[in-house]
């Protein structure tokens, strides 16, 4: 099994279209206009930050801007505010990048802290996500237009880390605030083409899980986290 019934299926489509197959190399798609690239392109970094805050808070997302030195205390306060652990954290060098290694030790002394482990099996990591009261991760980007954080899956940060915990906090450096999804997708495509990113899943997360399926009344937390917090760290 890999690909089944393809040629007969595609030959039939080509016949219906009245043209031979394998035309794409000489007829690639050409983008009709540059609206995706131009939209919000005139915004300064300060304007993008203000826009990101406004759009995130409207979702609603709790939005913080902190200096790196303030980050450990903010995280400790957040954990306390949300009722403590178990926490689920990714295995990543970002903790060291943000000088959070001491915070990791101190929070582990007070709370149950689990990590998404590259060498653990599926059941172990999913169990850690299932029981997590709080999930914390590092975002690749924050999109100003929509108040969206983007994350990519890797061995130290699985998909379920972003969906199973009850409360979810995402840390993103200020320099990674971009105008909209266009810039984030362009970066992911470039990294993948260069072989620098080998991920099976990229998630764009815009606030807490929600639904309007009962009488169109918006309710949060149907499947994913009940609430979401973004922390923009000044870099």
């Amino acid at each position: 099994m890999t690909i089944q019934n393809r040629d007969k299926f595609l030959d039939h489509l080509a016949e219906r279209l009245g043209q031979p197959r394998h035309q794409l190399a000489t007829h690639p798609y050409q983008q009709l206009n540059d609206l995706p690239q131009q939209t919000l392109s005139d915004k300064t970094p300060a304007e993008l930050l203000a826009l990101a805050r406004k759009n995130s808070e409207a979702l609603p997302v709790t939005f913080y801007e902190v200096a790196p030195v303030e980050l450990p205390q903010l995280l400790t306060d957040y954990v306390t505010d949300k009722g403590g652990g178990p926490l689920l954290l990714p295995t990543t060098s970002h903790f060291a990048d943000y000088q959070l290694t001491d915070w990791q030790k101190s929070i582990a002394a007070d709370q149950t802290v689990n990590y998404w482990l590259p060498d653990a099996d599926r059941a172990t990591n999913l169990k850690a996500a299932e029981i997590a009261n709080i999930g914390i991760s590092f975002a690749d980007f924050l999109l100003a237009e929509s108040g969206t954080v983007t994350v990519s899956t890797n061995p130290g940060q699985g998909r379920a880390l972003h969906f199973l915990p009850i409360h979810y906090l995402s840390i993103v450096p200020r320099s990674r605030i971009v105008a909209r999804s266009t810039q984030a997708v362009a970066w992911y495509e470039k990294e993948q083409a260069a072989g620098c990113l080998d991920s099976s899943a990229i998630h764009f997360i815009t606030g807490p899980s929600n639904s309007g399926d009962i009488e169109m009344q918006l309710v949060t937390g149907v499947h994913g986290p009940l609430d979401v917090t973004y922390v923009v760290v000044d870099d």
Partner: peptide, 16 residues
């Protein structure tokens, strides 16, 4: 709220 791009699990990942 969720825009997801995903496919077959990549070696080293544990869910998906």
């Amino acid at each position: 709220t969720y825009v997801t791009f995903e496919g077959q699990q990549t070696p080293g990942e544990t869910d998906g």
